[in-house]
């Protein structure tokens, strides 16, 4: 079973998880960490401590891959081959993880998460206007 952390600016991660709970109950457990009040090295340390708390594969969802959260996650997990960091976290990605994390191997899960998240970003309604 994988573990997951949503690591974002401000309160975005908590809001995503709370919003997901309005749509889907149960499924995998997900933790949340905000970059608020952390300097860069402390944020990476907090992610590392979270990852090292238990054995097994870990997923970290970040809002901006090249931002402080994405960089901290990459620094924290640089020596962990059983970790996956996904940027651009959105509600479909979180919902997919909650529903599928205990059913798929990590590599398959990554593929499904990216597929659902990317396909959710589209013009809604009359697509002929794009």
């Amino acid at each position: 079973m994988t573990r997951a952390l949503i690591l974002t600016h401000g309160k975005l991660g908590r809001a995503l998880l709370d919003s997901a709970a309005h749509i889907f109950r149960g499924g995998a457990e997900v933790d949340v960490l905000s970059n608020e009040d952390f300097c860069g090295s402390d944020l990476a340390g907090a992610v590392r401590a979270w990852a090292d708390a238990e054995e097994g594969p870990v997923f970290v969802f970040v809002d901006v891959g090249g931002g402080s959260c994405g960089i901290a996650a990459q620094l924290a997990l640089r020596d962990r081959p059983d970790s996956w960091i996904l940027g651009g976290v959105n509600l479909p990605m979180v919902l997919t993880y909650l529903g599928a994390a205990d059913q798929l191997e990590p590599v398959e899960l990554v593929s499904k998460l990216l597929d659902r998240a990317l396909n959710s970003v589209r013009l809604v309604g009359d697509e002929s206007r794009s």
Partner: peptide, 11 residues
Amino acid sequence: DDRLIHGQVVV
């Protein structure tokens, strides 16, 4: 900036 380069710096 103790976060060095990140969103505030780039954007």
